[in-house]
Write a protein that binds this DNA or RNA. Structure first.
Lengths: 133, 133
DNA sequence: CTTGACCCTGTAGCGGCTCCAGGGTTCATG
DNA sequence: CATGAACCCTGGAGCCGCTACAGGGTCAAG
């Protein structure tokens, strides 16, 4: 019992994904090519909506397209072990934590620079600290 | 009293910048084109070393190339007011803080997903949470 | 019949590099 | 003097994940 097919614009609205991005996902084979109307318009079904939402949720969580490809292929084999998904999440979590640490250090340095002086460049701590070793 | 000129490889070592990146900076006019030997080899001087270190330090702090262009032109006019540098740092600091906030939220979500179960995909919280709305 | 909203393809651009192919140069060694 | 390693050159393509065109076709409403 397939629902009535929807246009790419509709799919974009239901999934929160830009139309250009949807076509891009098709080109990189992340989203399977849908049927076409006689005029060549793409016609998506509920499966596409679900898959694209999955992709979007993954992207929102910061997974790379390749990671999402892996997660999708896992999702398609429900009786296989899911250690792969676990490792993927753990790896990504470690990445995120590294990035937070890097940015926090950066924030500290930038806070040290802010409100340099309000005077001229020659006396400016910001420029100074960029020049200094 | 200019020091003896150095090769691009030497400049790379002294500044911690990749050779390819140095040539790229020249192409985008961030680093001025140096003299050349008769054979066409680039010959850098101390000014280049200083400027490239400035650039690198700026990049390490997460400034965009365009921001660095601005900072460099400020640095070249020591008697001008330095409010521009201040605004640049403040804006960048705000960006960094936004990114930290975003990543922290992400970290929370990923921590909620980690150690899904150790069983099969069908019972996997990770895949589940990507499928669910 | 025209207007406007939608759709199509294909290509180029973004930032900030990084890498490669296909060469030339320089210098120490045999 | 030949050889090889280490360096240098240019120009162009590739990376990621889109986004933005240009230049057209389609379709429904008024």
């Amino acid at each position: 019992m397939k629902n009535s097919p929807i246009s790419i614009g509709q799919l974009g609205k239901r999934s929160g994904v830009n139309i250009e991005t949807i076509r891009y996902y098709e080109k990189i084979a992340l989203l399977p090519p849908p049927d076409r109307t006689p005029a060549g318009y793409r016609q998506y079904d509920d499966g596409h909506v679900r898959r694209l939402r999955f992709i979007r949720r993954g992207r929102d969580l910061g997974f790379s397209v390749e990671a999402i490809r892996t997660l999708l292929s896992l999702a398609e084999h429900p009786d296989q072990p899911c250690g792969g998904a676990d490792r993927l999440v753990a790896g990504h979590l470690a990445d995120v934590e590294r990035k937070i640490a890097d940015l926090s250090r950066l924030r500290g340095e930038l806070q040290g620079l802010a409100n340099c002086c309000g005077h001229v460049v020659a006396e400016c701590r910001i420029i100074d600290s960029l020049i200094a070793d």
